[in-house]
Write a protein that binds this DNA or RNA. Structure first.
Length: 829
DNA sequence: AGCACGCCGACT
DNA sequence: GTCGGCGTGCTC
């Protein structure tokens, strides 16, 4: 009987559409499974690890499939829920499965080959008839063994190297091979134990013999015994720990190993350290919290998603903790999403207190190796690693945590639901973690709680329309009063010459008062539109980026002018490039400038800054937060980051330095966001038994948003904004899809965008807006044009997306626009 | 995404 | 004249 040939459709970690079909070799070492990784050839020479998406026996007729080279995983690393989830993301956000794979998998699980060049052993070593470049490469190979194409490109300072390498292959100087490396390496540790031959009564004799002849060895042995004793009579001690306790003990250690008194063993250890905390019962809830919890449970009877609208400090976290506890008791796991990495540090401690080492963290600050370990501890019973630590049943993470391989989700919590950082902007998939998580919960049959003090207009509408359950908490926990909010008109202050730098006299006075009694201050400066730039006083020239249509930003450290879009930098100019004048000075201010000016008014005060620049390194975030909590910092100056749900109990004054930069931002969500931001920072002020204060500096004290901030009137903001949204055709009444057209050629960007907009308008009519030139019209040398599609709720989204796909393909096949790049952003933020 | 093929400008 | 830049098409 004929053998039936089977094939696998494989997803590759590339931004290309669809899956690729490979033949499964008819051999016992090819136990191919859906959701497991296989190694496949792709194109002329590349080798990738792809994920098996489908298996079938239909032989493709248009091409002859190549064979799968190897199976990487005996068991799937992607479960059936994830397969459905990935497909939903790819369809809804209009991206390829490959792009989802890139976003979803830690890169240590995405393998691809690298071309390695090495010396041909037949090469006689004669460098005589080589030209300069060949000589350089050969010389490097003779000393460094193998080189990547990148290395070679650097050595000869040239982009294209393959033609050159090919001639060298022909001349039999070099060989080339494709190498796939497993990027995940378990962390190993050497541990020391006492040889089993040494019995307890031998020790005495051993000590005696060493006492005179080998005092260092004795010291080492004693250190071992004391460490062992301290660690509950452990038989094994990490070598590192032992060496740390005996300084310069290397040779003594070697002798002990040689004498077979110490025995060494290699172990794979976890990068994710267990906290070893003792767990406590979850806290007892207040009456209000109990009520809210009961309401959530009640809604869950006939709703899958509940919006918990609770003012800042109303104690939402305790409610989440109780929900998590119940979910774990029912044997299911929990995903807890937060918008910012900064927040995980605070919340993790609170969760670990109750759930111990069942809680795992996952976010972009984790390196790849750590991510693989979290991944494996979510899968449970995987064979990817050999260390067997407990499974994580609670994952606390930023948006990318939605991609972890959950198999038994019971509950998803999305805190600070309104935060825009839940939306990924670049690269694709441009997914919203809140909306995706609700879909993920649906796939798992799980429940979702989204929480916020200032819900997004979309979510609140869903709640009022009873699509979500709605639970409201209007009191701050423990009877902490809402802060007093004072608005200072800085236009007026400026006129009366009462402004000092960027601080009103009132703010400075209040700061003085608060600092004197040992309380802390948070100052918030939205940097957007207020970055410090250099300007010529004579001709108003401002240094511009050479690649982007933006001004360069002044950075004091390193005395540089930097582009925040492409990273271009140059030295601070001392003269104007345009007119040669020496009168160039700094204009505008960012957090750096505020920190500096503040120090002048408060020379004794410890001031720290929290923004993108000071939190770049891995632990910088938690370091600053820690220092502030422990009162090693008196005043914290920061951007958006300081507003987000951080809880400090000694802050009694919060200053918003300039509310106008946010209010005047050209975006339909500007007012909503300004309110959210100010409400959030205000929530940082106030402590037990004392009312806090918030000072808002603005030139528009009569603006309705400012009034709502003062009155903590979320409802009004919602009502007004909802009206505007309806009037101007924005969500939640209309869905938006944003299309970006890019080209290095300005005219091509223009014409391509016009062509696409026209094509779309033919079918979609006035739903299509644009093209328009964005505020920043060139980034990294690409000219950018925007098209916005507004789709009424009743219209078929699928149909519109289909039209978009068709017309974009038609743009790319048009001879004039082949090199035009397009991006699609569904539900842009 | 990467990589090869093929067409045009700045050098030997 | 050629080398090497960049646009274009294709990958199971």
């Amino acid at each position: 009987m004929d053998q039936v040939e089977s094939y696998a459709n494989v997803v590759l970690p590339l931004a290309i559409k669809g899956t690729y079909t490979y033949k499964i070799p008819d051999a016992p070492e090819f136990p191919v499974r859906i959701g497991a990784r296989v190694i496949v050839p792709f194109g002329k020479k590349k080798i990738y690890s792809g994920i098996v998406w489908k298996m079938h026996t239909e032989s493709p007729d248009r091409y002859k499939p190549r064979e799968i080279m190897a199976v990487l995983d005996p068991h799937p690393i992607i479960n059936s829920h994830q397969i459905i989830f990935w497909e939903w993301i790819s369809e809804y956000y209009m991206c390829s499965l490959g792009e989802v794979m890139i976003a979803a998998l830690p890169s240590a699980l995405k393998l691809q080959s690298e071309t390695k060049v090495e010396l041909n052993p037949d090469f006689d070593g004669d460098l005589e008839d080589l030209d300069d470049k060949e000589y350089l490469i050969t010389e490097a190979l003779q000393t460094g063994h193998v080189l990547s194409l990148d290395d070679i490109s650097k050595i000869i300072d040239q982009k294209t190297v393959m033609p050159l390498i090919r001639t060298m292959i022909e001349k039999k100087i070099v060989l080339v091979e494709e190498e796939v490396k497993n990027k995940y390496k378990p962390l190993r540790e050497t541990r020391v134990s006492l040889s089993p031959d040494i019995l307890e009564n031998d020790l005495e004799a051993l000590f005696k013999s060493m006492e005179l002849k080998a005092p260092r060895q004795l010291e080492m042995l004693m250190a071992f015994l004391s460490l062992s004793y301290r660690d509950d009579h452990a038989t094994e001690i990490p070598k590192k720990m032992l060496m740390n306790s005996v300084k310069g003990g290397e040779s003594a250690f070697r002798s002990l190993v040689q004498k077979k008194i110490f025995v060494l063993g290699e172990h794979e250890i976890d990068r994710i350290k267990n906290s070893g905390l003792e767990t406590k019962e979850v806290a007892i809830l207040s009456k209000v919290q109990k009520d809210a919890l009961a309401q959530i449970r009640n809604h869950f009877v006939d709703r899958d998603t509940v919006l918990l609208h609770g003012v800042t400090s109303s104690g939402k976290t305790e409610i989440y903790t109780h929900l998590i506890n119940e979910c774990l008791d029912s044997g299911k796991s929990v995903l807890y999403l937060l918008p910012e990495i900064a927040l995980t540090a605070q919340i993790i401690n609170r969760l670990r207190r109750h759930f111990g080492d069942e809680v795992g963290v996952y976010h972009s600050r984790f390196n790849d190796q750590e991510r693989v370990e979290v991944w494996n501890r979510v899968i449970g019973g995987s064979e990817l690693t050999t260390t067997r630590s407990g499974e994580f049943n609670v994952i606390l993470g930023a948006r990318s945590a939605v991609f972890l391989p959950f198999h038994n989700l019971g509950l998803i919590i999305i805190d600070e639901e309104h935060e825009q950082s839940f939306k990924q902007y670049d690269p694709a998939p441009r997914y919203h973690a809140r909306d995706s998580a609700i879909m993920l919960a649906h796939i798992h049959g799980a429940k979702t709680v989204i929480g916020s003090a200032t819900p997004s207009i979309e979510s609140y509408t869903n709640a009022l329309n009873e699509k979500f359950g709605l639970v409201e908490m209007n009191e701050r926990f423990g009877g902490i009063a809402l802060p007093q909010i004072v608005v200072v008109d800085i236009a007026d202050e400026t006129k009366r010459k009462k402004m000092k730098s960027h601080f009103s006299s009132f703010l400075l006075e209040k700061m003085e008062e608060v600092l004197t009694v040992g309380e802390q201050v948070i100052l918030f400066q939205n940097r957007r539109g207020f970055a410090p730039v250099m300007e010529c006083l004579r001709c108003a020239w401002v240094p511009q980026c050479i690649n982007c249509d933006v001004s360069l930003t002044y950075h004091k450290s390193g005395q540089q002018m930097r582009c925040h879009y492409c990273g271009f930098s140059e030295v601070v100019p001392s003269t104007c490039t345009a007119c040669g004048s020496h009168d160039v000075r700094l204009r505008g201010f960012g957090t750096e400038k505020i920190e500096e000016d503040l120090q002048i008014y408060f020379p004794e005060t410890k001031i720290a800054r929290m923004d993108l620049d000071t939190t770049r390194s891995k632990h910088a975030y938690s370091q600053i937060i820690n220092d502030f909590e422990e009162k090693r910092i008196d005043v914290l100056v920061g951007t958006q980051m300081v507003t987000k749900g951080l809880d400090f109990d000694n802050v009694s004054l919060v200053g918003v330095l300039n509310a106008d930069t946010m209010l005047t931002f050209p975006d339909f969500r500007a007012y909503e966001r300004s309110f959210q931001l100010m409400a959030q920072v205000s929530g940082r002020s106030g402590r037990k038994g004392k009312q806090g204060m918030v000072v808002v500096q603005t030139r528009n004290p009569q603006h309705y948003i400012i009034g709502c901030v003062v009155d903590t009137d979320y409802e009004k903001v919602y009502r007004v904004e909802l009206g505007e949204r309806e009037r101007f055709k924005y969500p939640p009444f209309y869905r938006l899809i944003h299309i970006t057209v890019k080209s290095k050629n300005k005219s091509m960007a223009d014409r391509g965008a016009v062509y696409l907009a026209n094509e779309l308008s033919n079918l979609l009519g006035n739903r299509v807006l644009g093209p328009e030139e964005p505020y920043i019209s060139r980034i990294r040398n690409y000219y950018i044009r925007n098209i916005l599609v507004k789709i009424e709720k009743e219209a078929s989204l699928v149909q519109v997306k289909h039209i978009l796909t068709e017309k974009i393909i038609s743009l790319h096949t048009h001879a004039d626009f082949k090199s035009v790049i397009t991006n699609i952003d569904v539900d842009p933020q």
